[in-house]
Design a protein around this nucleic acid. Structure first.
Lengths: 70, 70
DNA sequence: CATAAAAGTGCTATAAAATGCTCTTTTTGA
DNA sequence: TCAAAAAGAGCATTTTATAGCACTTTTATG
C-alpha cells in the first residue's frame, strides 16, 4: 500500500466506525490538526502517528515481502 | 507489527540481500545517516522514508484490520 | 432552505526527522 | 591478530511533522 492508500484506509475505517475526526483525535492521542491534515491528503506522518491511529481503529501496520507476481 | 518489529524487518531483509547500509542508502534514496539511526533503534521514521526503504528491499507496507483473536 | 456539525485551511510555535561530515566502535575475513 | 569494512555516534543544519487556535467551507438533517 502506498501513501494514499494508507490514508484512505484510515478514513474509511474511521467512517465505518462512524466517529468524527475529533473522536479519533481523542481516542488515538493524535492531534486533531494532524488528523485533518492527513485525511485531506497532506503531510507525511511518522510511524508512531500511524500506529496510534491504528491502535484506535483496530488497524495494524505490517511490513511484508511484496508480492511480485501481480 | 510495532515499531521495533518493523525496524527488525528492515534489518533482516537487508542482511538477507547481503547489502550494506550504504548500498541500501543509495538504492533507496534514504540518507545513510538516517538508515544508521533507524537500524540502531533510534528515531521515528516518516511513512515515505519507510516506503522508500521498502521499495528498495521488496517490502510493502500494509495497514490492515488487526486480528483480535490472538 | 436554514442551521449545526463536521471537515478543511491559514498562521504559527515547537519538536523532531532527515541529512552530511567526521570520528569511534564493532565486525569480518585473510 | 590485525587491517579493512561496516556499523554506530556526536555535532550541526535544514526541513518538516505535530499541534493549537481561529476561521471558512462543506455536509448532513430537520
Amino acid at each position: 500500500m502506498h501513501f494514499k492508500e494508507i490514508i484512505t484506509a484510515i478514513k474509511e475505517r474511521r467512517e465505518a466506525f462512524q466517529i468524527t475526526q475529533e473522536d479519533l483525535s481523542k481516542r488515538s492521542g493524535v492531534g486533531l490538526r494532524t488528523l485533518k491534515q492527513l485525511e485531506s491528503g497532506k503531510g507525511n506522518p511518522t510511524l508512531t502517528t500511524v500506529q496510534k491511529i491504528g491502535d484506535a481503529l483496530g488497524l495494524e501496520l505490517v511490513f511484508q515481502v511484496k508480492d511480485m507476481t501481480k
